[in-house]
Structure formats: structure tokens, C-alpha cells
Design a protein around this nucleic acid. Structure first.
Lengths: 156, 156
DNA sequence: CGAATTTAGTTTACATGGAAACTTTTTCCA
DNA sequence: TGGAAAAAGTTTCCATGTAAACTAAATTCG
């Protein structure tokens, strides 16, 4: 509060070396993209995490709970809760296989399939908006680099 | 558990269109980078969020709490708690200016300065490891695109 | 002016996510 | 074999983060 540093306003704020931090930038970018996501898709009760889990189950029937957790980088404790909720909602089936009774194998109920299929369009169509955040070419480059960094260069 | 879908193992798992979702990839990448961060810097009690807040205060003395929150995309309710903790720890000073007694102006205590300065090296040196996750040129491109996307193309 | 609105930050009450300890089942050896 | 170790989930407890209602101060405008 003097001539040298009159309480900086939004645009004056300087973050210095922070702007070169990959972790920081990833977090800022993620918050920004998710904010848009929630603003657009709040109307449908659609949370990205839960949809992703059901989506991956639907593409990998009989997947083990632990394998799913590792793939989506969700901690086991949290995955247990997610699956319990979805089972209670009638979307997901848990099966304890006879050959390894420690493990849990996942599938979707009929309702679960319907949920995924009706939501799929809304969910993935949000990509179009995400993609408008940068020029098309930049976005393609960015997605490619993120796939490389995170190891999610997928097949399909 | 038959020939067609024998419970998929990690590498078999297919995530389909999810691999083209900017939001999903940002989250996966962020988890990966932060995991490394915590693994390396757990020994020092250093959390990225708290350090970032103190760092930005140190570069913008007299900044208003709300401006800081908006810049770092931290919600007001959470910022209040962060600042209360840091004030209790003796790192941050809250000042209510006479000309607008609703607002809060932030500064660092002597201890706060010392904290930022001693931690700065460790914190920013982690960038080197982050940067090793991709070839140098890719990383530069990625950081540039994330700056563009998130609006954190900084000065300095 | 002075009531109505807006702004800044705080409180409360809840949601999300994780670490550590625990249970059960399977595997590994001596 | 049978006891020790490992593996898969689960439970408990705690940290992080948010939404909504609230308080106090400043601004607007009839």
C-alpha cells in the first residue's frame, strides 16, 4: 500500500517462475476445463469421474476392480466407495469369482448400460467445446502430448 | 471369464474415446506429475498449493485475498481456511485496510519470507524432474500450450 | 439522505479423495 | 504340509475442497 506496491489487481499479479511449472499449469488448465464441464453438464447429473468408471467397465466387461483403479489412477479406498455407490444405484454388478475369492469382477446392469449409452452423447459432445478453447492444430498437439505424458495413447 | 472377455488385465484395458478427452487427459497427467512431486518432496513438509500461495504473496505484496483466490483458481471458502492456517503458523499477515474494511490485504511475516526462500530452491528444482518426463522439445511445446490454454503466459 | 443492492470475506455443512490399518484369501517355501 | 508372506479389497479416520447461507461494509440511486 505505497507507490511501489499499491495492492495489485488481478492483471498486475505476477506469478514468476510458477508459470514454468508443469504441475501448476496442469492444475490450472484442469480447473478451467472442468469448470466449463460442470457449467454445461450440471443439468444432467453427470460427474466426469463416475461416467469414466462406468464407461471403462462397459468397454471391458469382467474387469477387476483393482485393474480399473490402477488404470484410472483412482486409489483403492476411493474405488471401493465409488463402486458401492454405483452398485447401490443399480448400475454396477460386483461378482466374486470362485477361482480367486479375494477379487471383485465388475459388470454393468441393464440400467447401467442404458445410463452409459444415453449419457455417452452428451458427455463426449462436450469435447467439441473443450476443443474450441485453442485453435484446432494446437489442440491436436496438446492432446497428443498429454497422451504421451500420461501413457494414454489408446487403441480403439 | 470366457474366451471372448477373459477379465482384462491392465494392458488389455481399452478406454476408447476417453483417450481423446482433454479433461480426462489433464487429470491423468496431473495425477502422474503430482505423484512424483509428493514422492520426491514428502520429506520436506511441502505442499504445492500452500507453497504457491505464499510464493504469489511474496511476489505481490499487499495483494487482496480475493484477487489471489481468483488468480490461483481457489474458491473463496477454501482460501479463507488456507490463510487462517498460514496466519496461525506465523507465515502470513492479514491486514484490514481503512479505505475498504470488507477486504483483506496479505503479506508475509519474516518467518514467511524465510520459508519461501529456503523452500524455493527445492520446489523449483523439482521442475527438472518434471521436465525429464518428455523430450525437451516436447516439454517446451506442452508448457507453452498449457500456458496458452490456462491464460498463464506470464511476464517476469 | 437512506433503503436496496452489491461486494468481500467467513461459517457451516457436505463431497471428494487418500493413508494406514485391517480382513480374507491365495501363494510361497522351508 | 503348514506357517509366513503377499495380494485384493474394505474400513476408519483425516485432508482437501466446495456450495450455500450469512455478516459486515461499501455503493447505488430514487
Amino acid at each position: 500500500m505505497n507507490a511501489v506496491t499499491p495492492t495489485p489487481t488481478e492483471d498486475d499479479i505476477v506469478i514468476g517462475e510458477l508459470s514454468g511449472s508443469l504441475g501448476f499449469l496442469l492444475r490450472m488448465a484442469q480447473l478451467q476445463v472442468f469448470e466449463g464441464f460442470y457449467r454445461e453438464l450440471a443439468k444432467y447429473e453427470l460427474k466426469p469421474g463416475e461416467f469414466s468408471v462406468m464407461w471403462v467397465i462397459s468397454r471391458n466387461l469382467g474387469i477387476r476392480q483393482g485393474a480399473l483403479a490402477r488404470k484410472l489412477r483412482i486409489k483403492p479406498a476411493h474405488m471401493t466407495k465409488l463402486i458401492q455407490r454405483m452398485e447401490a444405484s443399480g448400475y454396477v454388478e460386483r461378482i466374486i469369482p470362485e477361482d480367486d475369492r479375494r477379487s471383485v469382477i465388475l459388470g454393468l446392469t441393464e440400467t447401467g448400460y442404458q445410463f452409459v449409452n444415453t449419457r455417452k452423447a452428451e458427455f463426449f459432445s462436450y469435447y467439441l467445446q473443450e476443443n474450441a478453447m485453442l485453435p484446432e492444430e494446437d489442440m491436436a498437439t496438446l492432446i497428443g502430448l498429454l497422451q504421451k505424458l500420461s501413457g494414454f495413447k489408446d487403441e480403439t
